[in-house]
Design a protein around this nucleic acid. Structure first.
Lengths: 229, 229
DNA sequence: CGCAAAATTGAACCCAATCAATGTTCGTGG
DNA sequence: CCACGAACATTGATTGGGTTCAATTTTGCG
């Protein structure tokens, strides 16, 4: 790893405050690696070898059963994944693949566990990340069990608009197939739900979605949990 | 708190290895309190005041939206809840109510955060708990998105059988209404799914469920993720 | 430019929710 | 201890959201 990259990595929230000695230990055995698009990085059921940290690009966590497949989370920089598996030293519950060309920092599991045990700042950062992700999943479960497909889509659009600067015009960060899988519906249904949102001031052309009247859309989205979140 | 209770609490996984000074600090401001059945302990949207630890009894975490309600998790001793909210110092995403008379240890949020910052053993225990719960939620999401109602029920029955000693005869730990809400279906549908499981060697009388042929049931349950879990 | 994957649209089907009615369980007070 | 009422549980009939299957159009990429 070059020293410029080293500084970049040390500045990440996960490593900020970590003692230099410990940080050196963390990255001494680490790899900073580039992967092309659509590459499977890990498979569910495997034992964790490395903690993965997304430096650049986009990663999809998904799971399969029988002949089905679903997207659990979609991650962007700077985020770890399979942190829980590394901490507990248990098999992955999800698989991961790149959605774009992606740069990933891989730290061997034993190193992570060692430094975690002796560096308080790192431990706190790990907990913070875990707690954040836990809350994200709680929101997902609430969304799935309490809202219809159209409502989930509406919520996602409002969320994405917020992330992209609340301009009322958003760009899909990934394909509609992936979005459908993430929202828990078929691609066909996502299509239908999108046209149904016309009644709520939403229009979609290609990868661009425009919200004409945000309040109208919020009416549908039943924003209760997002207000609190 | 009596000294016998104190010792009991100190022996909990969450506090094992915590320095005596720090443990004293944790419980000095804590309450050990008994609640009757069906009492709401916390409401989603509130700011966390205490970390809750279930010493005895059973607690349901649930969430509401519009006029709907759903069960997210059902917890038994010895488990914490709203740990993520306490760690991040953000509002609760779920509400909690007792399902049975319950004894709960309540530690003020600031104390938890202080001790967490200076006691490595406690920090590790917190992370362990968080990671465990995170993985539980991942399983929930997979279950919801990949399996039908009948399959989820089958999985739940097999899971419960395992927890109760794999005797092939299990006792419902809570009402069918609650179970239905937890599994993400209506009480009517749970009833129908239970009768449908007759074809898979499952019979139900009152609160008792008997599995005649476990392998037959596993066929339906599509156990993939549980084998790995 | 041309092909393959993705996206859309329509039609039929199915799982699950809702509405409605009856039977059962259980806690409570007489 | 029994009787009663209210909540819970079951069963049937109907409705609806969502999936599946199938065909067509569009997009994106080599």
């Amino acid at each position: 790893m070059h020293s410029s990259e080293r500084n970049l990595v040390h500045a990440l929230p996960l490593f900020r405050g970590v003692k230099d000695v410990h940080f050196d230990q963390l990255i001494s055995g680490a790899f900073l690696q580039r992967f092309p698009q659509h590459v499977v990085l890990i498979n569910e059921g495997q034992q964790p070898d490395f903690l993965h940290i997304i430096i650049d690009g986009m990663v999809e966590l998904f799971a399969t059963a029988a002949n089905r497949e679903t997207t659990i989370e979609i991650l962007r920089p700077v985020t770890t994944f399979i942190l829980a598996a590394v901490i507990r030293d248990e098999v992955y519950l999800k698989s991961a693949r790149t959605l774009t060309p992606t740069q990933i920092l891989m730290i061997p599991t034993p190193t992570v566990r060692e430094v975690f045990a002796k560096d308080a700042a790192f431990a706190r950062a790990v907990v913070d990340e875990l707690a954040l992700r836990y809350r994200g999943l709680v929101r997902t479960v609430k969304e799935l069990k309490l809202h219809s497909g159209a409502e989930r889509l509406a919520n996602w659009i409002l969320d994405m608009d917020r992330q992209q600067g609340e301009t009322g015009s958003i760009e899909l960060p990934y394909g509609k197939r992936t979005l459908a899988s993430f929202l828990g519906m078929t691609p066909e249904n996502l299509s239908r739900n999108l046209t149904a949102l016309t009644d709520y001031s939403v229009t979609c052309h290609g990868r661009r979605i425009v919200i004409a009247d945000r309040e109208k859309l919020q009416l549908l989205a039943q924003q209760k949990d997002l207000i609190y979140g």
